[in-house]
Nucleic acid binder design. Structure first.
Lengths: 211, 211
DNA sequence: GACAAATTCAAATCATCATTTAAAATTGTT
DNA sequence: AACAATTTTAAATGATGATTTGAATTTGTC
């Protein structure tokens, strides 16, 4: 019986192409044809290897997450919470312009946050919740421990939504809003701004009596 | 020569239905058929009265903005900048769940911010810039006057993107993220959070040496 | 009431994509 | 080399939605 292995290569190329295209366009706007072309494969290959576009999306997610080790934000023990928050924010904001697996995953992640497909419900908890928990932990510490859960979650929203913007807004519009070209340096400054802005925000809402 | 006027009524119903549907679904996900059904008109009427979906979108924008007077955030003279910022934030966040013309325009506006169509470039400046300028003014004052333009624009992004989230995130996801049902009361608390968070953020980045 | 212009309507057409099909090509095994 | 399972391919099919068409219908004017 013949057990060919060459199909697995195509499958892999499809996964990688899918990551790129989904990360750039989002699920809805990504065309199966584009993915196949980028992968150098026939349109029918998506159906052959994955069944349909939705399944390809889910598998692309899982594939992008394979590189998990380098995905994690480094957190040396003893690092002050302010610094941990800074790292997480820079991580979210900067990686979306980065080449490589890490940037790709971040783009995929923020894209799903921006316009959720609901297709990865199962995958989501396993992949995202641990990362989310880290952010919540830092916020919790920064709030001073006495804050109610709602406050923590509100702060999380404030931070995530500031970070999301870079992804969900067209580059043209960002340049129009900020009145300057979107350089890596600008992104760094923006990350720094979001950090300071959010640190102060957290401290401020932490001083209120919790409900 | 006959000059019938009854067509104008249909045109108006189409505009109002278009506002609602576009505001709810965004340009891409809004179906011409849905708009027509809501307006009680035939599908062909969009073509007859407006030419195509894109033109209908632009005209819906202009229509939604007709109610301009009540659109403006009230700003009694002598009101402290903190209070002016609070009003603007509550305005942005709360109106998107509100009935009526004001809420509709806010939804349309935030929806275009969330996924820009690029169709209303011409309309945008005339309609949005004055409103945007008000927010920038308040931020400028709160920053203490010595801040560079980039800082002002960064703060604007921070605030707008916090407000956008409520619109660009599916209600289900908001409830999941915040772990509670999305009631008007929750929205009020969220608006209050964004206000405090942002006020502190602005004050903090205003104390840095400007570049 | 009859006419002409304006408006509505149901159905047809187009365009865009995802998905399926069935034939052709390739690979591993003998 | 021959064969069978696997993979690729071009072309067909389907589904969804926007747009167009041309025949009714309605309205204002005479």
């Amino acid at each position: 019986m013949a057990i060919r292995e060459d199909g697995k290569e195509t499958r892999l190329r499809l996964l990688e192409a899918a990551c790129e295209v989904f990360a750039e366009k989002g699920y809805r706007n990504a065309k199966v044809a584009d993915i196949c072309q980028k992968a150098g494969a026939n349109v029918a290959s998506v159906n052959y290897h994955f069944g349909d576009k939705a399944t390809l999306y889910v598998e692309a997610w899982q594939h992008a997450f394979q590189i998990k080790p380098e995905m994690d934000v480094p957190e040396p023990p003893g690092m002050p919470p302010e610094e941990r928050l800074r790292l997480q924010i820079h991580f979210l904001i900067q990686h979306h312009t980065e080449q490589g697996a890490m940037g790709q995953f971040t783009r995929l992640y923020l894209m799903e946050l921006a316009s959720p497909t609901g297709l990865i419900q199962n995958v989501w908890h396993r992949l995202i919740d641990p990362r989310r928990q880290k952010l919540l932990d830092v916020i919790h510490v920064l709030l001073g421990g006495s804050a109610c859960e709602e406050t923590i979650l509100f702060c999380e929203m404030s931070i995530i939504n500031q970070c999301r913007a870079l992804l969900t807004t067209r580059p043209d519009d960002i340049e129009y809003l900020l009145k300057q070209p979107l350089t890596p340096d600008l992104i760094t400054r923006l990350a720094e701004h979001v950090t300071r802005f959010s640190l102060a925000g957290i401290k401020a809402v932490g001083q209120l009596p919790s409900k």
